[in-house]
Amino acid sequence: MRQPDGSSSMLTTRVDAMLGWVRKNSLWPLPFGTACCAIEFMSVVSAHYDLARFGAEVVRFSPRQADLMIVAGTITDKMAPAVKRIYDQMAEPKYVISMGACACTGGFYRAYHVVQGVDEFIPVDVYVPGCPPTPEALMHGIIKLQEMIQNGETKYDRLKHPEPDRTASAG
């Protein structure tokens, strides 16, 4: 946050830090699950792995109520406009985890109907490799994202403050 004269102050950085802390511990995921990876996502929210331990269990299917899109599964060219539309409908701040080889790069479907990575059209914060990633891997991805939120390193933060002058704001 910046003062009208362009300088930043001690107080506002603390607000940033606090907001980051609040946001990272209350992620509401929107699972954009299309394929096999979505089944592993179900595992992650089920009793055995229990995503609630990381404060991210409030799964919402409405983009208006979610701030973390987890793209779990292959995205085809036919599906791409829907992904984009739903991403655009999410309220800011918003983050994206691309779960699995398919969402990251198209996976082993180098084919005529498959998007070769969702970052072709939406910004991705964390790429979780695997086909499908194990539940542990996805949880690792979520923890990574939490760190990034805390440190203001997500795509959203970077797009908002194009040059994060962290030393100046800390002083």
């Binding site: 096999c36 292959t74 085809t76 036919k78 829907a82 479907y109 084919a111 109907h113």
Partner: peptide, 30 residues
């Protein structure tokens, strides 16, 4: 339908017989 058309049949024509097996896993992935 077709929102998950991942071109299994075309992919299998570009791979060896054994290599098709991982693709078959992802047909009914349940």
């Amino acid at each position: 339908i077709g929102y998950l058309h991942r071109c299994f049949e075309k992919m299998s024509e570009t791979h060896g017989w054994q290599q098709v097996i991982p693709y078959t896993d992802r047909l009914n992935y349940c």
